[in-house]
Amino acid sequence: MTNEFLLAGFGGQGILFAGKLLAYVGLYAGKEVSWLPSYGPEMRGGTCNCSVTVSDDPIGSPLILEPSELMVMNTPSFDKFIGTVKAGGMAFIDSTLVDGKTDRTDIKCFWIPATGLANENGLKGMANIILTGKILKETGLDDMAVIEKALAKVIPPKKANLLDANLKALKLGMDA
């Protein structure tokens, strides 16, 4: 089993952080993982994306051009990547921020108003985590013990107080 996640949005939306969380969930679930960011001028406020592979087998290319799971948090990324999702794959779209539609019927699209949900629930800035929750649920990487361990690992010690809020966001996403 191999999941190839491509996460995309603007810099500052927590795309790389969400990718790191997915990678650690994979690692603690005993799988092979790789995490590859886009880097360079894009880091400075432009579009940002991140490839995460979670697999039972050793990973070849860490660069994902045709994701099995796509997460998008802005319209340019939606337009750019929705056509690249593998047939039978899934797309997780922040419908508060993405204005678009697709005629693809060979993939499953989850339109989740993640930013709206975050704002309504006092979880401002955690739309990325809400979407990640949904991804974990739909891909079956949803062992809560593993997820909590991964979350504790990726949240920097300085922000440890945000652990509960992140957990809440994850669960909100899982139930969305």
Binding site: L27, V33, S34, W35, L36, Y39, P62
Partner: peptide, 10 residues
């Protein structure tokens, strides 16, 4: 190269 330098793996 940048790919190896920037990517994370266990």
């Amino acid at each position: 190269d940048g790919l190896l330098g920037q990517m994370m793996e266990p």
